[in-house]
């Protein structure tokens, strides 16, 4: 192993190995997030009732959420009520992340999260930790949708967070995948409950979670 061989190896690698380049989309996403972060830093603290937790939840999809949320909050002054349930669910997902109010009870233990809902809801939502399957439970939260209190269960997939909203329903049926403002929304009914999972995670992974919960 002499120096000359080192040089030849270097030449071979430099001439032929793949140099991966950041996509224009990645660069644009980074610039946008920096600009938003910078704008939020300049705002006086008292005028900012919520904090930007985005550095904790990196991800291109999350950036979209922040942009959507920021436009809504800065332009309209307050979160707009979407006319449909998917909009309402997505709004709840985004607000939970933005307001740093993701969970009321933070625990990956299903036996801690499930009993927490007792006395707060008139039903008991099914809670499972799916950490072994790659979807660790982050915790639970009480939410308010379509005029009723509902359970929101929070799961994590890599750096992405998933809100699963659960409330009683007598029906049973197919899983449907929809989307709202760049978020994926998965819906199914079964076991006396209806489920709505909302996240910026990709559709395939959200469907994996759906299958695990069904």
């Amino acid at each position: 192993m002499n120096e000359e061989n080192d040089d030849e190896l270097s030449h071979l690698i430099r001439a032929h190995a793949t140099r991966h380049r950041a996509s224009p989309a990645l660069e644009a996403a980074v610039r946008t997030e920096i600009a938003l972060q910078s704008a939020s830093m300049r705002r006086p603290v008292s005028a900012s009732p919520w904090r930007w937790p985005i550095w904790r939840f990196g991800g291109v999809g999350f950036a979209c959420g922040i942009i959507v949320g920021a436009v809504v909050m800065l332009v309209a002054g307050q979160p707009r009520d979407a006319g449909n349930l998917e909009g309402e669910l997505t709004g709840s997902h985004v607000r939970a992340l933005m307001a740093n109010h993701l969970t009321d009870i933070a625990s990956s233990d299903q036996h801690t999260v499930k009993p927490w809902f007792q006395g707060k809801l008139d039903y008991s939502p099914p809670v499972q930790d799916l950490g072994m399957q790659g979807f660790p439970l982050v915790g639970g939260r009480l939410d308010y949708l379509s005029g009723r209190a509902v359970a929101a269960l929070v799961y994590r997939r890599h750096d992405h967070l998933i809100n699963v909203f659960v409330w009683p329903d007598s029906g049973d049926g197919q899983t449907t995948l929809g989307g709202h403002q760049g978020y994926n929304v998965l819906h199914w009914r079964g076991g006396g409950m209806q489920y709505w999972a909302v996240s910026d995670v990709n559709a395939a992974e959200l469907q994996t979670l759906g299958r695990l919960l069904r």
């Binding site: 972060q37 991800g59 890599h158 990709n202």
Partner: peptide, 17 residues
């Protein structure tokens, strides 16, 4: 690719902070 993009974006935000 996707994981690398997530990682770089998160790193840039940390760097900015």
């Amino acid at each position: 690719d996707h994981v690398a993009e997530d990682i770089v974006q998160d790193a840039c935000l940390k760097a900015y902070r």
